[in-house]
């Protein structure tokens, strides 16, 4: 067990190193920071001085090490566009994105798994078929269109909910939350639905197909042949076996929620890191892009690690090494 966890942690560290390399290469090859920092009137001496100052005259591995060292301490340099430290901007923006992701992730997982189980058990039922058809529309509708549609309906036509922004926020130290004010709560409804809908349909369809697969297995047929109640068969035997693949994909989907937040945040002008990132891409603001990449990968790697540990809790085949067999 311990070796397994250790192995996973090591792998995660490796992933982070690779991502770090990608982020660092962006600094190296995309645009010249000297260009960005010095104006038109510059001398060769200025350039040389700045290169030495920034350590750009050092060999590649040394620079990479420096970059990692700084990154670990949360120092990603200064945004080309805003002229402020990237870390500072990120801390300011992160709570908005995290709150949005958490709310829509919760929506997606709870409703998605529920509907998936329902549509699998009632495979040929009318309601189940209707839900499946609607879900395909959900998969085919780009997130931004859902957002625009919701804004049009609930903000423009009905005027019930705000079309953009985060509403009033309350500060707790560096964390700002919109979940404690009525305007903040109102403001998060539409973005959360927009962001969660796509993930929800994906999770639902996955749960359904995995569950149907499991329901075909011999041990489920055997459980039925023993006369066990449908409830027991469906939930105790089938659902639990469905969970392993579902957790994998759900983990990945949670990661995507943070990435898809970029789109939702753009549509709703939600002041989170996604909006920050998309602006950075448009203006080739490399430090912000690199920092966002690192931040996201830390989150993803964390989620994956949790997923791996959940496998352990669910699947006994991983816990025991098959002792006693033969």
């Amino acid at each position: 067990m311990l070796t397994y966890v250790l192995k996973r942690v090591l792998q995660s560290a490796l992933v982070l190193l690779v991502v770090g390399l990608v982020a660092f290469s962006m600094f190296q090859f995309v645009g010249d920071p000297i260009d960005n920092m010095l104006g038109q009137e510059r001398t060769d001496a200025d350039i040389a001085r700045l290169r030495a100052e920034l350590g750009l005259d050092q060999p590649f591995p040394v620079q990479y090490y420096k970059f990692l060292e700084n990154a670990v301490q949360g120092d990603f340099g200064v945004s080309y566009r805003q002229g402020r430290p990237v870390a500072e901007i990120l801390v300011e923006r992160a709570p908005a994105t995290l709150e949005l992701a958490a709310v829509s992730g919760f929506l997606a997982i709870s409703i998605g798994i529920g509907l998936g189980v329902f549509t699998a058990i009632r495979k040929d039922g009318f309601l189940a078929n209707a839900i499946m058809s609607i879900s395909l529309i959900g998969v085919s509708l780009p997130t931004f269109l859902i957002g625009i549609l919701l804004i049009y309906l609930f903000s423009v036509e009905l005027g019930w909910l705000p079309a953009f922004g985060r509403g009033d926020v309350v500060k707790f130290g560096w964390w700002s939350t919109g979940l404690l004010t009525s305007t903040g709560l109102k403001a998060i409804i539409l973005p959360a639905i927009t962001l969660g809908l796509y993930q929800m349909t994906l999770i639902m369809r996955l749960v359904r197909s995995e569950m149907l697969e499991v329901l075909r297995q011999d041990y489920v047929r055997f459980a039925r042949a023993r006369g066990l109640k449908d409830r027991t068969v469906n939930f105790r035997h089938a659902l639990k076996n469905t969970l392993v693949p579902v957790i994998t994909v759900t983990g990945l989907q949670l990661g995507s929620i943070i990435a898809f937040a970029i789109i939702t945040e753009t549509v709703f002008q939600w002041p989170g890191v996604g909006l920050l990132f998309i602006n950075a891409v448009q203006f080739v603001d490399i430090p912000v892009m690199a920092a966002y990449l690192m931040l996201i990968s830390v989150m993803f790697v964390g989620i994956n690690l949790i997923v791996d540990l959940l496998y352990f809790a669910i699947d006994p085949r991983l816990r025991t090494d098959g002792k006693g067999a033969h």
């Binding site: 990661g255 998309i278 892009m289 994956n304």
Partner: peptide, 19 residues
Amino acid sequence: LTFPSILVAMLIFGIAKGV
């Protein structure tokens, strides 16, 4: 796979824009 494809595409786009 840990990174959603849309993010990867955006990064590539961003890098290409710089290059």
